[in-house]
Design a protein around this nucleic acid. Structure first.
Lengths: 227, 227
DNA sequence: ACCAATATTGAACAAGCGTTTAATATATTG
DNA sequence: CAATATATTAAACGCTTGTTCAATATTGGT
């Protein structure tokens, strides 16, 4: 299921980096100490600084490595046809560092590398959705970028709030669901498909059409140059 | 726009509590020191402890107070008809502590009081949606609780990821949009309404019906039993 | 085998943290 | 007014943090 083999890179810096990702994913960046990372990697605290300079630089290295892993796995999952769900790729990535939980913790504390990753996911979604629209599978939109942004952020928001999601409907969105694909995610993906299939009735749409008479054309931000 | 008047409660504990909410909302609970809260409130650090015992108890007091504020404001906003959006209530609450940003920071670090608040929002949404279904405005569902949970978490997820949302489509979901109701939220609520109006086409719904046979995808009034 | 470079450690450091304590100001009350 | 309780402060304590440093082990090239 994976095209890359992280176990081939077992150098000490790599072990420290993976230990940091594991700790950050479990407790968050701020609540993780360098000594905890060192203990997880089986080295001393000084060695962590020796290899990465500072906690901040280590965190940046983790961001970049996680982003590169997700980009790699994304390519293999795209062939499998999992287009709309930006988490499908990393969920199938078992055995390596916990990518989904790392993202769940770091999406909220404003790293530019994570922001770049989100922008890429949005751009990917724009492309996937455009393909789906051309194929007649998805409804067209006057504002495809905004629609793709909102859908992507909803999916990532469910990841960030995975504890609430699990408490409410008993589904762990950060887990690997490739082992039980027919059962584990049904309580989530079923209603998701239902909502996206049409939550409002035609009556409501008419009312909404009056409430939002003209569509929102707001081409102010960057990060978008899709066709 | 507000039915309560927090400025009437200007005792020292209340000032400290509001200062803590402001700091927590700005930087998060872990990154906020007691000394920073004391400075914001214009008192000494020891006084914060004297009135609240510990940082943890102060945080609990903030959780409970924010929850009570949201519950109060919710009642007034329900009359205004803003049912589906669980954030509509607190956005109209300007002048007091930053409720939306406080929630955005605390939704992710597992407070039981915040979890209770989320559960209440989901229950509210279940009621609102049921009313909308009976009125013919919303599509019925075989799993109304799951659907309401997912919709609520999507809205709260967009709140938690408000920095990404603002970067992507230029809309600050934590701000007060009652001042410019016709313009400010259009880039967000327009596409949201569009998505909820129907993102999948009928062709996709049939395909989804095969992928999730037991899932509640409403392509035809054929209601199957669930496992 | 030797030397230089690197890897690694454990101790130490300064800063910041939450909290405690003793002292002082202020208010309350009989 | 005196006595007591509360409010408030500044300083200090113990702890953890990220980081530095000197010393030691280990490696690699010639």
């Amino acid at each position: 299921m994976r095209s890359i083999d992280p176990s081939a890179d077992r150098s000490t810096p790599a072990r420290i980096r993976d230990a940091a990702i594991t700790c950050f994913a479990a407790d968050g960046v701020a609540a993780t100490s360098i000594r905890a990372i060192a203990a997880e990697a089986g080295v001393s605290a000084g060695l962590v600084i020796h290899h990465y300079g500072s906690k901040d630089q280590l965190r940046i290295a983790c961001d970049e490595y996680v982003a590169s892993l997700i980009r790699e796995v994304k390519g293999t999952a795209m062939a499998a046809g999992a287009g709309l769900d930006p988490l499908a790729a990393m969920r199938s990535f078992s055995g390596g560092p916990p990518l989904a939980r790392y993202l769940a913790k770091t999406l909220v504390d404003g790293s530019p590398h994570v922001a770049d990753l989100v922008d890429e996911m949005v751009n990917d979604a724009v492309g996937y959705i455009a393909t789906g629209v051309e194929a007649g599978l998805l409804a067209p939109s006057d504002h495809p970028e905004e629609r793709a942004s909102i859908l992507t952020l909803w999916m990532l928001g469910a990841l960030v709030l995975h504890e609430h999601l699990e408490r409410l409907i008993g589904f762990d969105i950060t887990g690997d669901l490739s082992e039980d694909p027919e059962e584990s995610g049904r309580a989530y993906f079923g209603p998701v498909a239902e909502i996206l299939g049409g939550f409002f009735t035609d009556t409501t749409k008419e009312l909404l059409g009056e409430a939002f008479p003209d569509a929102p054309v707001k081409t102010e931000p960057d990060t978008k140059d899709t066709a």
